[in-house]
Amino acid sequence: MTLGRVIGSVWATRKDEGLNGTKILIIQPVDLNYDVDEEANPVIAVDSVGAGAGEIVLIAQGSSARQTKLTHNKPIDAVVMAIVDKLDVFGEAAG
């Protein structure tokens, strides 16, 4: 999974019917200090846990994103599937 911050949401009335009824959020990947990951583009992900703007979340991408009741068999490759309470970091992370 990727760590990210909810920085906004997307409104699209004309879209694939598989996306009808979904809440679409904009997620900016962040590093373990919650600072913006400069090299990572924002990800447009469907919300499945009621995440709000500013919250730190986990997103699952690729076909794993379709493994929820909400996103099953839908044209969705990124889903917000957890809201982070806290991180414990004890080891050393790369760049």
Binding site: L3, L32, V49, G50, L58, M81, A82, I83, V84, D85, K86, L87, D88, V89, F90, G91, E92, A93
Partner: peptide, 9 residues
């Protein structure tokens, strides 16, 4: 190198 705590998931 660490753990993520997430009650809502």
């Amino acid at each position: 190198i660490g753990t993520v705590w997430a009650t809502v998931k």
